[in-house]
Each structure stands twice: as C-alpha cells, then as structure tokens.
Amino acid sequence: MRDFILKRVAALILPFVCVYGFYVIFHGHISPGGSFAGGIIVGLSFIAFSTIYGIEKGRAKLSEDVLTWTESFGTLWYGIMGMVGIFKGVPFLANKLAGIDLGLPGELFSSGLISYIGLGVGIRVASTMITIFFTLMEDEE
C-alpha cells in the first residue's frame, strides 16, 4: 500500500478505465460489449482503486448509502422503462410497438428504450460488484 509507482500509474490509468466502461455501456446496442460487461469494467476500476489506495479511501468515495441507492435505482429504472409499454397499452418492455422513434441503425441514439435500459443495468451491475468487494474486505469483529 506504500508503492509510489503503483499509485501514480493507477492515478493515470483508472479514470480512463472508468470512462471506457461507460463507453461500453452506452455503445452496447451497436458494438460488441453490453451493459453487463461495461458495468463490470466500471466496478473493476473502483475495486482496483480501493485495492491500491486502501479500503478506507475507496469507502470514502462511494459510501454505503450511495451504493444502496444506485443498486436499487438500477432495478427500478428497468421496471420504469418496461412500464412505458404498459402505459401505452402494449406489452411489457415493448419498444417499437410503443411508438418510440428507433432512429437510423448504427447511430448512437438509435434504438429507443434499449440504451436507457442498458444504462440502468450497467449502474446496477457496477454497484453490485463494488458492494460484494466491500463486503468481502470488511474487518471481522
């Protein structure tokens, strides 16, 4: 935990790892990868941060409340996006049937609800991974 080179290299690389995770999440419908893989990459950047800089600094960045709220928000977001179809009178999770503009294939904002659902799933997976890691690293009584 006292390694100077490790800390400086991590400070250089880890922000880009986190941004790359969000890139994979947002491009889940037009390129390889998806919300699950992107969420794990975002979670891994925080896991690496707390491994290198110490668990206390990691907990200071993402407290218990933030993790609980984001984890619940991801699931709730999926439900809300699914209910859009029901409020329009078509089945659950309907995309084109609900009258949403799908846009041109291959563009970033092109698939209606799928990219928004992917954002929720990515946040949920990232916070779950961080929660599991923090729970495992907890000190025993």
Partner: peptide
C-alpha cells in the same frame, strides 16, 4: 461480445 464479457467477468 462474449469475449469482452468473459474478459471482464473472468478478471472480476
């Protein structure tokens, strides 16, 4: 697609 997921999940 599976390659990216396997890389992320395997390391995790």
């Amino acid at each position: 697609d599976l390659a990216i997921t396997e890389a992320a999940a395997g390391i995790c």
